[in-house]
Design a protein around this nucleic acid. Sequence first.
RNA 1: GCUCGAGUGGUGGAAUUGGUAGACACGUUGGACUUAAAAUCCAAUGGACAUUAGUCCGUAUGGGUUCAAGUCCCAUCUCGAGUACCA
Length: 944
Amino acid sequence: MNYDFQDIEKKWQKIWAERGTFKAKNNTDKPKYYVLDMFPYPSGAGLHVGHPLGYIASDIYARYKRHKGFNVLHPQGYDSFGLPAEQYAIQTGQHPAITTEENIKTYRRQLDQIGFSFDWSREVRTSDPKYYRWTQWIFIELFNSWYDKNEDKAVAIDTLIQLFETNGNKDVNAVCDEDIEQFSASDWNRYSKKEREAILLKYRLTYLAEAEVNWCPALGTVLANDEIVNGVSERGGHPVVRKKMTQWMMRISAYAQRLLDGLNTIDWPQPLKDSQTNWIGRSQGASVKFYTIPSENAKERFPIEVFTTRPDTIFGVSFMTLAPEHELVAKITTAAQKTEVKTYIEATAKRSERDRMADVKTISGAFTGSYAEHPFTKRQIPIWIGDYVLAGYGTGAVMSVPCGDQRDYDFAKHFDIAIPNIFEGVDISNEAFSDKDKTVIANSDFLNGLSYKKAVKRAIYELEKLDQGQGKINYRLRDAVFSRQRYWGEPFPVYYVDGMPQMIAKEHLPLKLPEVEKYLPTETGEPPLGNALEWAWDTKQASVVSNQLIDYKTVFPLELNTMPGWAGSSFYFNRYMDPDNNKELFSKEAMDYWQDVDLYIGGSEHATGHLLYARFWQKFLFDRGIVLKEEFAKKLINQGMILGTSAIIYRISGTDKYVSKGLKSNYETEELRVDVNLIDSVDVLDVGALKNWQPQFKKAEFLLEDDKYIVGREVEKMSKRWYNVVNPDAICEAYGADALRLYEMFLGPLEQSKPWNTAGITGVYSFLKKMWRLYHSGVEGIFKVTDTTPSSDNYKTLHKTIKKVEEDIENFSFNTSVSTFMIAVNELSTQKCTSRAILEALVILVSPYAPHIAEELWEKLGYKESVAEVPFPKFEEKYLIESSKEYPISFNGKMRFKLEFPIDMEKEAIEKAVMEHQKTQAQLQGRTPKKVIVVPGKIVNIVG
RNA sequence: GCUCGAGUGGUGGAAUUGGUAGACACGUUGGACUUAAAAUCCAAUGGACAUUAGUCCGUAUGGGUUCAAGUCCCAUCUCGAGUACCA
């Protein structure tokens, strides 16, 4: 019987599903192990061979842990809200739910054929109301919480109300909006309901705010910072402009420091940690208040607050710069400068983010006509505006120290502003000096002669005395915009009474997405939900707030925005623990048992999106006592991308002739990409197939070399537009799922990017056939495993393999264990091994990698239970220990030859023996023998 | 610019953490089987000289530490990823 992978794979996939082999139990005595993949967005294109790479790796690990006696949770689901389904709906009118459902079916079929050990009984879908009711539930929890800096955690909003009632907000130490005025308890008690709600909103962890947002007109929605790449939208590459809008925000900035600190407690890849660290962007410095000097049109003394990391250079300030959007600009600009400033602001506002980023070299700005007073020297400092100062960072204003900052320097040079030097022995005639380590301050009153560190301390101390500044830590991380003007997302569980947001009672969740006529935003700029024919906010739910039938649009309008893509993915790992629970997010027992993810595998592109937001929500849920661990995933691995190898043909310009790669230098050609599936083993194009592929090639002529058309190759992202997509279905059909699994692992280290090359798959495929043959004999393929006692060689091969494979899996170097299997099978074939003891163990070793063939052989070995349930073979050192060992002999450090000695021979005895050998050699070659030294345990050394 | 990461045959990649570099696989070449092809099996395969033995050179480049360096240290070059007027 031959290795018929198609029958075998279908058979076992069916049996696994029927038996529920991979169902995880929530209560056993076994230790738990939670292996998680980043769940996919089910796109219309289906899976290509790059997608399952991480899933195969996690599957191997999950199966391995199962062999090691763990109760393994290895779930899978779909992140099924998202833009492509919605855009498809806009074009075709087909409901996103329908396309999503179809796509999920394709994904499921493709995933199933690869033979994953997912527990599908726990599947979640973010677009399923049974799931997103909990997304809405968490949103309500966030709304009902504030961040207490004294306790350094999120607490219930009720505690804040109590504080207000008894003491006002005097002693409240919260992370909140910055424009809060002080009020007393009696003030609070006098306020109207609406006034109180407005104040509370400034403290809540999710809040409404008028904010400058990234508006993408083409998509008709706002985008978060991480959804913008190079100034254009990540999806579609549309331009993005800044716009003020009222939006739901998430107070992630409250967690900036803890998100940073938490990175030290988790085993995540360093590059990923680095990019989160950069994203959070902590910088230590001081905030300093400068006061404006009153003039005819601005009689008040306005404070301008700036953030600086160099308070030591405060005596070097020669001007101040405000972002053009800064709110003080309008108030302080003098009549004389009004036109100039206005023109400048209009010019900068017109520039898109992209222009602004593309052109950082041009220096531009305008003088406001006003001056500020230096806190120490009391000198007049001109106040400028310039777009090199960003409204979104710090306070949107800087104290400009041209001698110490290159941007300030360039600005000063450009506008001919003074550049006072405050550094000892430094020439600043050509550029600013910013080397902190070599800094010695001069011309700076009390800071003279101090180093950077000391000067910073002293400057802050002096500023505090004046009450014009203090030490401050600033974070780049901004609060996240949580509203999207889209249809296909979670509706907010929010309605408005008198303009103030109210939460729908939790028992009435989920608030379901309504049917709409159109999926585009309405003409009035309302989000698509404004098109709702009938809202899920039905009579029953409405009566809860009003006890009467209402028209939601006029009486209690609902929030029409939806939540962003990252909402549903920020807690799904917790929901898998108890996915069918419709009373709680999860039961206490489930959380007690599973706690957190032990191994999380997914792409590094989520570093500053999903992975940051998920950590934020986890910390919040932890603060509120809902989850048990502050970090949701102990270990994370980023699998590399599998790239496509595009095939290129060369058309002679202006003709219908195509020239083979080796001959193209003789002609002027242009490159065309063709379907990689038209290329056979080694870059040879199937010319006939190409002619049928696209009409444009019907009449094409080909100039061949050696009767072949050789294509050019280019490694690039696997994508339809390059025709380099390889479909796993085709691979499974031709070589089987086990071959696909092995090959994806064999391709190279898990975390590295590597190009796919179908030609190489024959190697692992022939390994599988060899392995099959190891258990069968003759042409008829009779199962030939016997009860003969294994030879010592058999044992040695087996235990060598056990050791290596176990180490490989623990270190996630799955690529090398594939080689180890190949060596083992080759050795056992040479040894003509038929011993049951050896061959049984081999099946178990291979089973995490190639589960189908393993199950089939296991069954043939006479077992009824699945091989997945069997304990991993135990490594025993004794089979590897030999009676003698070869010692490499080095001569002046150079390896020359080896000598064999008994394993228990003493060091001195070996030295002596080598000496003897030396003498005979020396005699033969007619020279004097050399001195011999044995380096302990390692090597025999001869020194000349 | 800044922060990480990586440079090993024709190709993907190994190398027990300082101890015989190139495992394993692809590809290539030769051979066996075959009317032929496919499939399968066997052999060779870093380079140079020698073709019996062998010798020399080789892990991006230049130095260094060491009996011994792909591995550790310093400098340089190249490529990749992230980030970018962050005060």
